[in-house]
Amino acid sequence: MRSALLRALRGVRWYVRELTDESAYDRYVAHVRKEHPQAPVPSRRDFERMRTERQEADPRQGFRCC
């Protein structure tokens, strides 16, 4: 019973992280370490800044509300 509950909670946590794109940094770090092992891994703050700048520069993203 307890293992089923823990498995369900892990599933919910995974789903929420994917839905909110909270796991994007983790995926990016895994990609950089695998594909470019010599490259420095940016901090989460730098990653979020790069991601925001890329989104704002893309005309398909439309305007930013906030």
Rank of each mutant, 00 (worst) to 15 (best):
K34H: 07
G11Y: 04
A8F: 11
R27M: 03
R17A: 10
E18A: 10
E48A: 06
R33V: 15
W14K: 15
Q61N: 10
R2M: 04
R44I: 11
G62H: 09
C65Y: 14
S3G: 05
V29N: 03
A39K: 13
E53L: 15
L5S: 10
L19A: 10
P40G: 05
W14E: 01
F63C: 10
L5C: 02
V41N: 02
S23K: 10
H36I: 01
D58W: 07
L9A: 08
P37I: 07
G62L: 12
A24K: 06
V41D: 00
Q55M: 05
R17N: 11
R45W: 03
P42E: 02
D21H: 05
P40I: 03
W14G: 04
A4G: 11
A24F: 02
D21V: 07
Y28P: 06
R49K: 14
S43C: 04
C65Q: 14
A30D: 15
C66R: 14
V16Y: 02
S43E: 02
G62Y: 05
R45A: 12
A39W: 11
P42I: 06
L19F: 10
D46K: 15
L9G: 02
R49E: 08
D21A: 09
P42R: 04
R49V: 14
Q38S: 14
G62W: 08
C65A: 13
R51D: 00
A30L: 06
V32E: 04
V29S: 01
D21Y: 01
D26L: 08
R2A: 10
R2K: 12
C65E: 13
L6D: 07
A57K: 13
R60E: 00
L9R: 14
C66P: 00
V41Y: 00
Q38A: 15
S3E: 12
T20N: 01
R45M: 06
V16R: 09
R60S: 06
F63V: 14
